[in-house]
Amino acid sequence: MSATNAGSATPLLAALSVSPLARSLQRELRSRWPSTSDRVREMSRYALLAPGKALRPLLLVASADAVGGSRDGVLPAAMAVEYLHVATLVHDDVIDDDEFRRGQRSVHARYGTADAIVTGDFLILTVFTALAECADRGVPPADVLEAVRVLAGAGADVCRGQAKEAELTSDPATALADYEAMIALKTGALFRGVCRAGALLGGAAPEPAAALTRFAEHLGLAFQMYDDLLPYLWDSGSTGKPDTSDTENLRPTFPVLLGYQAAGRRDRERFARALSGRMPAQEAYALVRELLEATGALDRGRARAEAEAARAKEQLAGLPGSEGVELLTVVADLSTDRDR
């Protein structure tokens, strides 16, 4: 498998960071979060301005554009979804005790667990303030209210997915259907909520809104499936968090489940030992990587993720906003091209 240096940009990050829309979103984010003596806002600023793709804000604006909506009208909502996403990451790092996120120390590692929880809560509540701004920019209040419902529901699903993931800990025999149900909540829900909210705020009719919802569901699966492959495709540190994080947290991710399915009795026992918590994290990671290569799980995982990305693109046919559709297509393509 190919690898990259920790400091190099992935195709997804590089392509999105140079797009005019991504640059404008980053400028808007920085302008809204200047340095301040307010501790909670400063911790939130630290989390929000860490190097990242601004992928979810970009998806929301592109979805609005794809149905012929106003980019300016949905810009506050784009900020809101980044607040929601980053809040989940802050809390996720507390749960997993991960010390790094996006190439820098996680919020709880820098400021402490209590302040990290407060920061995540603060960002979640700020979501609603930002969404309300859309009405001031000409979006019908009824559409804003519906977007609030959609994003609140997506946030609740993320929590359900997090709880479901905890149920799967340490069990490499987990059924793939259970894994897919979990990632459809933990990762896919926010993709789905972001794209549907963007469509609604952009004034979409029911069928275009449904098409973008389906696009997001497939994209979310592709993105998380491929994300699970990255620790085994890249050199240590390339993903912005330790490659050993999943094995250290005894997490049976997508390639592990594929590998376990294909393994014989002896290798299944080795998978179980790697996720038992009885091995040092680095040794467990090395064993899992060896088993994934031996069973062909990485190649099969890549193929499945690419198939989901292709299904996502099929949903975009017939949408009127060419620029938005083009950008969504690029995101789908690059969601499974992040290891070179």
Rank of each mutant, 00 (worst) to 15 (best):
S8H: 12
L16K: 05
R27V: 04
M43L: 10
Y46F: 15
Y46S: 04
A47H: 08
L48D: 05
G52Q: 09
L55C: 10
L58D: 00
V61Y: 02
A66Y: 03
G73Q: 05
A80H: 04
V81N: 04
Y83M: 11
Q104C: 12
S106K: 10
T113R: 15
T113A: 12
D115S: 13
I117T: 05
L125S: 14
C134E: 01
G138S: 07
D143H: 11
E146D: 13
R149G: 11
L151I: 11
L151A: 03
A156L: 14
Q162E: 15
A163Q: 14
P172I: 01
L176G: 03
L176I: 13
D178R: 15
M182Q: 10
I183T: 07
A184I: 00
G188P: 04
A189I: 09
G193S: 10
G193R: 10
A197S: 14
A199Y: 05
L200A: 01
G202D: 08
A204D: 06
E217S: 09
E217K: 00
L221R: 15
S238D: 08
S238M: 06
T239P: 00
P242R: 14
E248R: 15
R251Y: 01
R251A: 10
T253W: 05
F254N: 00
P255W: 03
L257G: 02
L257K: 01
L258V: 09
A262Y: 05
A263K: 06
D267F: 03
R268P: 02
R273H: 12
V288A: 05
L291V: 05
A294P: 01
G296L: 07
R300P: 02
A303F: 06
A309Q: 04
K313I: 00
L316Y: 04
P320E: 06
P320S: 09
G321T: 09
D333Y: 01
